[in-house]
Simulated assay, not measured.
Amino acid sequence: MKVNPYLNFDGKTEDAFNFYKSVFGGEFTANMKMEDAPGTDGLNEEEKNRIMHISLPIGKDTILMGSDIVQSMGHTLNQGNNVYISLHPESREEADRLFNGLSEGGDVEMPMEDQFWGDYFGSFIDKFGVRWMVNFNKQYI
């Protein structure tokens, strides 16, 4: 089984994914606008330019995916604290790089520190409202 996080935004997908690409590197494997989909002729220009689907590989078996909502199609975005993306890098250095890069401009909940359960861990909300955990445990690499 593979698990791929899928993120929804209200017109911020392109900005968010360009930011994530600047941290993770790589290239988008898909980047489609709403105007590319059939039946979207009635959308206004701003909605036509929103992201229908975007994919960014962020690891060997993980692809970060996302899209924008389209209010005129009945979509509603509800941001909450029920979803985190948990990253498990292969070194403390990579954990720090990811944490520092992705948390830039965001809100740090727990800074990267050695934790009582034995892991090097931190959590934050990025500048786009997405919640992340970075967890390194040398026993699992």
Rank of each mutant, 00 (worst) to 15 (best):
R97P: 03
P111L: 08
M110I: 14
P5Q: 13
E47R: 15
S67F: 14
V108W: 00
M65Y: 12
G101M: 14
I58F: 08
N81W: 01
A37S: 13
N78A: 14
L64R: 10
S91H: 03
E35T: 00
G25M: 01
D96A: 00
F116D: 07
Q115H: 11
D15W: 03
F28R: 09
V83Y: 00
D15P: 01
K12D: 11
M110W: 09
T29Y: 13
V134T: 12
S72W: 06
N82I: 03
L102Q: 07
G42N: 14
R92Q: 09
E94I: 01
E47M: 14
T29M: 07
E45N: 06
V83G: 00
N135I: 06
D36S: 15
E46D: 14
N81C: 00
S72N: 05
R131M: 12
K2I: 03
N4E: 06
L87V: 08
I69D: 07
G105H: 02
E27I: 00
N18K: 10
N49H: 10
R131L: 09
G80A: 00
R92D: 05
W132K: 11
L64G: 09
E45G: 02
F116K: 10
G11W: 14
E104F: 13
F124R: 04
N31W: 14
K2D: 01
G26R: 05
D96I: 00
I63T: 15
Y20E: 01
E35Y: 04
I69N: 11
T62F: 06
H75R: 06
D96T: 00
L56W: 04
G42H: 11
G11C: 10
D126W: 08
N82T: 11
E109K: 13
L98Y: 01
L56V: 02
G74M: 03
K138H: 11
L98Q: 03
P111N: 09
Q71I: 12
E113M: 09
F24T: 05
L87A: 08
R92G: 01
M52E: 12
Y120W: 02
G26Q: 03
Q115A: 15
I54Y: 12
Y84E: 10
Q79Y: 03
E27Q: 02
M73K: 12
N8M: 07
A30D: 15
E45S: 11
G74D: 02
T29E: 08
M73G: 04
G122D: 07
N4S: 08
S91Q: 02
K138F: 05
R92M: 07
E93I: 04
I141E: 11
N44F: 08
E113I: 05
L7Q: 08
V83Q: 02
L98D: 04
E94V: 02
H53G: 12
E27Y: 00
S67I: 13
M34Y: 15
V83I: 04
V23W: 01
A30T: 12
P5K: 14
M34P: 04
E27L: 01
I125S: 12
M65D: 12
S22A: 08
D114I: 04
R131V: 07
L7W: 06
N82L: 06
D119I: 05
H75I: 02
S86E: 01
A16S: 10
P38R: 13
G105E: 00
L43E: 09
H53A: 07
E113D: 05
R50H: 13
F99P: 13
S55N: 10
T76C: 06
I58V: 13
T76P: 04
F24S: 08
I141W: 03
N18Q: 12
Q79H: 06
N78E: 15
V3I: 15
